[in-house]
Simulated scan of single mutants.
Amino acid sequence: MAMWKRTFGLAAAGLAAVVLASSPAAAYPNWQAVDTNANWTCQGYQSHVGSSNVNFKGCVVRNAAGESQPVLVVQNKAGVAINIEAVLSVRSLTDRHDPDVYVFRCNPSPLQPGFTRGCFGPTSANWTASLTFYFNGIADSTAVSG
């Protein structure tokens, strides 16, 4: 019985390591609170085509290993809640002859007045990303590279 528990425990630990190692370091599919620091490089805010009270910008967050991740940051300056969602199309530039494109979606979510949230993409070494932001169903976009 002890041998079975040890074997099962090792197998479970190995499976967990594989799952965790294969998961990208990102917060999608849910919107997250944004807390910028010196590791963040962001564009200036731009107004969404649907409202001058809804702003967004693209950011790049770098880590100590030299990798980075795209983030779409959304700010609601309107006096009412809005509905937001995003699509991040991230193109790997590691192999220039066969670049891979990965699509990440942040789920539709309400954004209350005065709040700021971010849609975080995956962490990798060399990429470019198209960030499409949907506010009440209307699309607008920007792009960043890391």
Score class of each variant (00 low, 15 high):
Q43F: 03
T7I: 15
N53K: 13
F8N: 10
T123H: 02
A143Q: 10
T116V: 14
C119A: 05
I82Q: 12
S92I: 00
Q75I: 09
W127S: 10
G66E: 07
W4G: 01
T142C: 07
A26Y: 02
G79M: 06
P24E: 10
F135H: 07
G146V: 00
A81N: 10
N126L: 09
G121V: 04
R91G: 00
V74M: 03
D98M: 12
T142E: 08
P99A: 11
P122Y: 00
G121K: 06
A25K: 09
L93V: 03
R117I: 11
S52H: 06
A38S: 15
S22A: 13
T41A: 12
S124R: 12
N126A: 07
E85N: 15
F133T: 13
C119S: 06
S51M: 06
R96T: 15
I82V: 13
G121M: 07
S68N: 13
D95G: 02
R6L: 14
A16M: 13
A139R: 09
D140T: 02
A125Y: 01
A12S: 10
P99C: 13
G44H: 05
A12Y: 00
Y102Q: 15
V103W: 03
V90H: 03
C59E: 01
S68C: 08
C106E: 03
P110I: 06
M3V: 14
A64M: 08
T7P: 00
P70W: 01
V90F: 03
Q69L: 15
P24A: 08
V54I: 15
N83D: 12
C42A: 06
S141Q: 11
I138N: 06
T41D: 07
V18F: 08
F135T: 08
Q75N: 15
A65S: 13
Q32G: 06
V60K: 04
F133D: 11
F8E: 09
L15G: 10
P113Y: 01
K57R: 15
A16Q: 01
I82L: 12
C42H: 00
A78S: 15
S89K: 15
P29Q: 11
S47W: 05
A11Q: 03
A143E: 09
T123M: 14
P122E: 02
L72V: 09
Q46L: 07
V74F: 00
A86V: 06
W4S: 05
V73H: 04
T94V: 09
Y45N: 14
A33D: 14
A33R: 14
P110W: 05
V18N: 03
H97D: 14
W31G: 04
G121S: 06
F120K: 00
S124F: 05
L10P: 07
V144Q: 02
K5F: 14
G114Y: 04
S22M: 11
N37G: 04
F120D: 01
P122V: 00
